[in-house]
């Protein structure tokens, strides 16, 4: 997927250069781009190091587990079948907590574990409603603190950094809620597999 994206970008750029005659800018941009990738990594390196250290402490001290417990009563209504049959509930709560904290590296393995457990003993190749809801939460979830975005903005000299949190909370919360409601509605109408 990424390889194809890279090839497309290069080919389209070359073709466009024949039209726009920006040869010099194109050649310069290759060096500039390679150098910029290092700047981007450096700009998020510090905050990612700090944030992952913080989260490891919270995980080891059981704070994340407590957060998961707080989420359980809410998640019961969002994943009715999983909680009724008591399958994968721990994996689901862990995955949603990771999503809320913006632990993007941890969410995918946790989600795979949860979906794998929900799929145990099933023969159908159709997704269940709860699996789809979990995937939608993976696409749009309430986000307490978008560390990467803030780190990038700070490194680019933005003056609006933390002020962004309020609109981020509103936007991510609305998107998540709409996603969940849509999933539950469609699930109700079409039934489950």
């Amino acid at each position: 997927m990424l390889g194809k994206s890279f090839s497309f970008l290069c080919i389209i750029s070359l073709l466009a250069t024949f039209l726009t005659k920006n040869e010099k800018a194109l050649a310069d941009s290759i060096f500039g781009g390679a150098a910029k990738s290092v700047t981007v990594v450096i700009s998020i390196l510090g905050l990612m190091t700090l944030w992952n250290g913080i989260l490891e402490v919270l995980k080891d001290a059981g704070v994340i587990e407590k957060l998961s417990k707080l989420l359980r009563p809410i998640l019961k209504h969002i994943f009715p079948r999983a909680f009724k049959e008591n399958t994968a509930t721990e994996e689901i709560t862990a995955c949603v907590s990771a999503n809320i904290l913006g632990l993007s590296n941890a969410t995918t393995p946790l989600a795979l574990l949860a979906i794998g457990k929900m799929n145990e003993g099933r023969k159908s190749d159709k997704a269940t409603n709860d699996m789809i809801t979990l995937a939608i939460l993976g696409c749009a979830c309430f986000n307490i603190i978008p560390t990467t975005v803030i780190a990038m903005r700070v490194s680019q000299g933005a003056s609006i950094t933390y002020e962004l949190l309020v609109p981020v909370w509103i936007c991510s919360f609305v998107c998540m809620t709409v996603g969940i409601i849509l999933c539950r509605l469609i699930g109700k109408i079409c039934g489950d597999t």
Partner: peptide
């Protein structure tokens, strides 16, 4: 740091896209 190889390729691609006018 592990992001660097992927980011390097993609940022070069995106920079070329912007610079070429595409």
């Amino acid at each position: 740091v592990n992001l660097l190889p992927t980011l390097c390729a993609l940022i070069v691609g995106v920079s070329m896209l912007t610079a070429s006018g595409a």
